[in-house]
């Protein structure tokens, strides 16, 4: 063998898939190293606990490994992999007892009369992002994401955390682009509301 592996990190996902399909099965390790962190993070945020996230991760990569020969070159590997992960997440969820609380209605997420009066006072949007991203706020953000119903949470994670396009997200979850957009909008509004309530509490507690 002539130094295989040395240059694997330079290859595109789909080139690695081709090598796998030609029998070079150890290239799968390179694909795992590219996606293991992202998939584990998503699993943890979707399942809410490390055991389920680990199961989901394992199930996803094992299914991907077994399905590699059926992968079509015109597809995008990351989209295909997250599709598998989405199904694994759903199976995990059916086993878990966790179900999110009632979400705000769209009207409650809009600019209400109360907020009309307080928003300019709170001013949390004027704080630089890096200053906002302290440990406490990170916890609040985790909680916010955790409180979203799973279909909204999945879309928020795929679009805003993973950076998939609306079209790719639709492929991953099996929904139309317009459904993706509407879920993303509601998820973002919910997150904004939750952060606003938190920041408002902060203002009050320091008063």
């Amino acid at each position: 063998m002539q130094g295989k592996g040395a240059m694997l990190d330079k290859l595109q996902d789909n080139e690695l898939v081709t090598r796998f399909q030609q029998g070079q099965h150890d290239v799968f390790e390179e694909l795992v190293s590219r996606y293991v962190g992202r998939l584990y993070s998503m699993g943890l945020r979707m399942c809410g606990n490390t055991d389920d996230a680990q199961d989901m991760l394992q199930e996803t990569f094992v299914a991907a490994f077994k399905g590699m020969d059926a992968f079509r070159a015109e597809a995008k590997f990351s989209v295909w992999l997250f599709q598998i992960a989405k199904h694994a997440c759903m199976r995990m969820r059916r086993k878990s007892k966790f179900s999110p609380r009632e979400i705000f209605s769209l009207d409650e997420l809009a600019l209400g009369e109360d907020e009309r009066k307080t928003l300019s006072v709170v001013d949390w949007h004027r704080t630089p992002i890096d200053e906002l991203l302290n440990k406490e706020l990170q916890g609040v953000l985790d909680e916010t994401i955790h409180l979203l119903p799973s279909d909204l949470r999945m879309v928020l994670l795929l679009r805003d955390v993973e950076g998939f396009s609306a079209e790719e997200t639709g492929k991953i979850i099996g929904a139309s682009v317009s459904a993706v957009k509407s879920r993303l909008h509601r998820a973002r509004l919910f997150a904004r509301k939750h952060l606003h309530l938190y920041c408002q509490g902060e203002v009050r507690s320091h008063a």
């Binding site: 949390w124 955390v161 973002r188 904004r192």
Partner: peptide, 13 residues
């Protein structure tokens, strides 16, 4: 403004 800040925070997770 707060909506945009929220999205930026989520994206920086």
């Amino acid at each position: 403004d707060t909506f945009i800040t929220t999205i930026e925070l989520v994206k920086k997770q």
